[in-house]
């Protein structure tokens, strides 16, 4: 029992003395302090040191890292934007932006590149949240881009995931954004695991995995030549679990579809997807009303629903702790090939 006590005391004593000079009269504690000093009667004298821990837990650490990155963006870029879809990761981004910039306004607009095939619950939430934060929300959609001819649908292609690329690049050009902050995380996917916090993109928005800037300590190189662009990912080091723990800790609202609800679903490609008019069930496909939730939100066609009774953040955290499939295991867009994400990123994806 005494060993544990000693270790703690030793580590913070010098620090605590600095912060609480009024305790300078106490004997200074070091590894050389004789054990006999710690008698039952002296222990209360040391309690001020023991009450206070100068050590961050994992969420605090991830938070301070992300806030630092957000502020670097605000300080170093002329026209940054935050990519906000209404999904759980970008919800965390917005809280981090509040933490970084309040009591000022968040000094950048929100940009949403919508597929036009969103869950209605998501759009309602997206608009409401932006309003609550007094932020400017810019929405550009695949539908508009198809109309204008900026994006062209491949024959037989139904998912609009790939089509978000020209829409994003179009919006970057239209508003001359030099930096877009996104909610991507390295634990999502193997190609993302190799991407930097500050991910440099050439004037075509392309990512070159073999030619990335080294990132050392907390020194980020955000310098660009005209036309070039930066994507910044403050949540790079966060896991799905961290995101939910943060949502819980910060009491953040998330769209209702993350929680368990009843929905008509079709069995397709080994998973349940929402039964929608966009892609009606074929005669041989099984349709069922089941209790589901979504784990990750893409467009409504490619988002798999998981059967789940999880109705609260706590339920979800327990569910993830026990989960045996990764988050993106339920995204059809990532199942195309082993390198699906790598290919999209090289083409300019988020």
């Amino acid at each position: 029992m005494f060993t544990g006590f000693l270790t703690v005391t030793y580590d913070i004593s010098a620090v605590a003395l600095k912060a609480h000079p009024e305790f300078k009269s106490l004997p200074r504690i070091s590894k050389h302090t004789p054990l006999k000093l710690f008698t039952p009667s002296t222990i209360p004298l040391f309690t001020p040191f023991l009450m206070k821990s100068y050590h961050l837990d994992h969420l605090d650490y991830l938070e301070t890292e992300a806030i630092h990155i957000m502020r670097e963006v605000a300080a170093e870029f002329e026209r940054p934007a935050i990519l906000f879809s209404g999904g759980k990761d970008s919800i965390c981004l917005l809280r981090l932006a509040e933490k970084a910039f309040r009591p000022s306004d968040i000094p950048m607009p929100f940009l949403n590149v919508a597929t036009g095939h969103e869950f209605p619950e998501l759009l309602e939430f997206r608009d409401r949240r932006a309003k609550e934060l007094h932020a400017k929300l810019i929405v550009r959609t695949v539908d508009e881009a198809l109309e204008k001819g900026i994006a062209v649908q491949a024959p037989g292609q139904i998912s609009r995931n790939q089509l978000q690329i020209p829409v994003l690049l179009g919006a970057i050009e239209e508003f001359r954004f030099d930096c877009c902050i996104g909610g991507a995380r390295r634990d999502e996917e193997k190609a993302r695991a190799k991407e930097r916090f500050f991910s440099f993109r050439d004037s075509f928005g392309q990512w070159d995995p073999k030619n990335q800037r080294p990132e050392i300590w907390n020194l980020y190189n955000g310098r660009l030549n005209p036309g070039e662009n930066m994507r910044v990912f403050p949540l790079s080091n966060w896991t799905e679990m961290d995101v939910w723990e943060y949502i819980k800790r910060e009491k953040l609202e998330v769209p209702s579809i993350y929680f368990s609800h009843k929905r008509r679903c079709v069995r397709r490609g080994g998973q349940w997807v929402p039964d929608t008019e966009l892609m009606p069930a074929k005669a041989n496909e099984e349709v069922k009303e089941i209790v589901v939730r979504v784990r990750t939100i893409g467009d409504i066609i490619s988002t798999g629903c998981v059967e789940s009774p999880a109705a609260t953040c706590d339920d979800i955290i327990d569910e993830i702790a026990a989960a045996r499939v990764t988050e993106r295991g339920s995204r059809a867009d990532d199942r195309v090939s082993e390198a699906a994400m790598e290919d999209r990123k090289k083409a300019g994806y988020f």
Binding site: H58, R186, D187, K194, N237, T239
Partner: peptide
């Protein structure tokens, strides 16, 4: 090719 970052957790630490 590059530095890859991986994440795991135990009940004691991340």
């Amino acid at each position: 090719i590059d530095v890859a970052y991986r994440y795991f957790a135990t009940p004691h630490r991340k």
